[in-house]
Design a binder for these strands. Structure first.
Lengths: 188, 188
DNA sequence: CCGAAGCATTGATATACATCAAAAAAACTA
DNA sequence: TAGTTTTTTTGATGTATATCAATGCTTCGG
């Protein structure tokens, strides 16, 4: 059952098999139904998730109540409100499930305990931060240098899974446009 | 002369005085004139800077040739194209001096050598990545949830130094609006 | 399998902000 | 210090995208 998680760790860390088994034991399975929350606005993020199946997203709410999706994690990747997980301050990001999902949860406490204990885990965290930074950087780059149409086309070319698997409503909020605009964009 | 750098390390790391001296010796002084480049588009970023005096910025160029400022580092802070420094891929970001400046330079090679050698330096790098992530995250948050006026007002309230010290042209590109819009915003 | 709720599409209109243009002010520089 | 370049301001106009509204289409719980 935890084979997918173990495999992820095997590929993305320098941990040996014994260490991987030990770390995997800190991750506890959790089932979440579609449209339910892993983190609400204002909560402090105390957990990090490995998505075993389904789909978890992280998003903001504008003052007008519009959703702005920052990140979507499909099976085999990591999800959380990284900002709040880092700062341990109340989160402006919400985390919810877009499909019925199974995740493996590690607590903030265990996560940081492992950093102090295992250099290879500290190195993994560093790599995670680097990847997260690169992702955010690209997101800003796209927002400030491309038009709505260009952002859509680029997503289509580079990671079509988002377009295939997300509803128009979510996809639009991910591209920072409205449903209506996306609908018009698609029919061109 | 390197006292400002040493002090920065004293405050932001867990290094002892001896380690700080040793690390400071890897940083070499460099003088850059206003409007000259530390990194051009397409170059791989091989250096990280501590700004001793003056002002260094990081920005993108859109396909139409417009500048979009991502970050401005005043004296006492760190500057570089973090993305390219991490990935060692050609940079889409340019780095230049907005004022005559003095920086202390550490090479990518030395920087990573120190990570392997000194756990406290690895920890500092982790902290740097965390801060950089939080900064980028807030930038996205502001871009997608606030209007031009709201972004300006927020900057004014939180970090007025940008408004005091940057020209309207740079400030506008930092807020992701045009000079003209900024000028109108200010007179309200 | 039905009905309600959410989702997608299309059209008409509104708006925040960009673009273009020109003059005034400020900042370099020879 | 004059002269050139760069920056700022102001006005007129343009445009990408949002908003509002109506209709048809899915989906899913009962």
């Amino acid at each position: 059952m935890k084979e997918k998680l173990r495999n992820y760790l095997r590929i993305n860390t320098k941990l040996n098999d014994e260490q991987i088994d030990s770390i995997a034991s800190y991750f506890k399975p959790k089932t979440i139904k579609k449209n339910t929350f892993l983190l609400s606005e204002g909560e402090i993020c105390k957990e990090l998730y490995f998505v075993h199946s389904g789909c978890i997203r992280t998003y903001y709410l504008t003052t007008q109540g519009h959703e702005k999706t920052r990140y979507v994690a499909f099976e085999g990747s990591i999800a959380t409100s990284i900002a709040s997980f880092i700062s341990q301050q109340p989160s402006l990001e919400l985390v919810d499930a877009l499909e019925d999902s199974v995740v493996y949860v590690i607590s903030h406490k265990d996560f940081h305990g492992l950093i102090a204990e295992l250099p290879a885990w500290a190195e993994f965290y560093r790599m995670l931060l680097e990847m997260a930074y690169l992702y955010q950087n690209k997101k800003i780059e796209n927002l400030v240098t491309l038009s709505a149409k260009q952002r859509f086309d680029k997503l289509m070319a580079e990671t079509p899974i988002y377009i295939q698997r997300l509803s128009n409503r979510i996809l639009a909020s991910f591209l920072d446009i409205t449903q209506e605009t996306l609908s018009r964009l698609k029919s061109k």
